[in-house]
Write a protein that binds this DNA or RNA. Sequence first.
DNA 1: CAATAAAACTAATAAGCGTTAGTTTTGCAG
DNA 2: CTGCAAAACTAACGCTTATTAGTTTTATTG
Lengths: 196, 196
Amino acid sequence: MAKIKPGKNSSKKELITQKAANLFKKKGFSSASMRELAESVGVEASSLYNHIGSKSELLQEICFKVANIFTSYLDSIENTVINSSDKLEGIIRFHINMMLNNFDEVYVANHEWKHLQEPYLSNFLIQRRAYEKRLIILIENGIQANEFKTTNPYVAVLTILSAVRGLEFWQQHKKNISSYVLENDMVKHLLNGIIK
Amino acid sequence: MAKIKPGKNSSKKELITQKAANLFKKKGFSSASMRELAESVGVEASSLYNHIGSKSELLQEICFKVANIFTSYLDSIENTVINSSDKLEGIIRFHINMMLNNFDEVYVANHEWKHLQEPYLSNFLIQRRAYEKRLIILIENGIQANEFKTTNPYVAVLTILSAVRGLEFWQQHKKNISSYVLENDMVKHLLNGIIK
DNA sequence: CAATAAAACTAATAAGCGTTAGTTTTGCAG
DNA sequence: CTGCAAAACTAACGCTTATTAGTTTTATTG
């Protein structure tokens, strides 16, 4: 009997998932076909089903992998004793670096989650809502501690998360700006504004 | 011979375009079918083709309508003599109000443009790039005039445009925050930051 | 009322989709 | 070498898609 080869097996599935993230990003989930995905992997479409359950399953894995990474980081930073400003800055920098280093998967989680099937769709939205709620509390704490200006905490979270998401556009301009300048200038803008 | 009824005729086409924007927003361009669109309009799918050329044409009209509105506003504000800060604030407020009042079409232009066919796809990207370039120059002028902090102008534009785009998420929370609070708090955040 | 054109309809087409069934190849274990 | 399972293949299924052709209805004008 041939041994189960978990190393090879899972790396092939990971390859498929990674290629799927890239394809879903380029064409969108609905426009991406399994035949195209298969071509980028280097096999026939039907062979993919030796490794995956379905097209939808690929989307689920991408979306929840990303969601869990962000949730885990927030867990860890909430357990530190630094002040709210430093927590917020850490979160912003984490989001920026996730956008820069895991672009395909983060992009798909941001843009294609609506094609998740139930119950995954509802679970994803619940998880995202919970994440936002924890950020709102962080902002509220910072306002009470007199670190942040008085502002609507939800609007602040929306502004920050959205600005960071916009880094997807920067991927085309990579050559002109270093990611170092980008990260620091965006953090400064979101924390201190642009007006002198 | 029956008269051409431009009023009725164009209003039917506008109805289709408006329903298409709503459907493309909800399902994405690729997942939205002409049969669904026809159902929301109240006719059979083939009847739509008495009024429109193709599914792609609907997307083109939505995307370029939105692009032209933003370009026109920028034209007008560039011709005023107010300082860079006030110009920037006006642009931010215009973007926010477009998101709030023309949500479906702006959403589609922001998310579904990649499904445009050539040469419309290239034209759209060129127009958007030109728009961003003009905003960058506005920021540069503000820095030189000592109105804005020294920062990378492209990063500033990216931050602002992306934050405003994020209002799409707010559409689900409408009941909790007035659009008045939202607009003013977001403008303050983007201009002056959150740190006290 | 008769004529006409806009706009609806039914029916069909060709293409592409995700997925399954069944078969063959590949590669390691005893 | 033999046996077996993982993983590739070919072929096909049933379904949906945008769009077209051809026909009928609707509504308005002279």
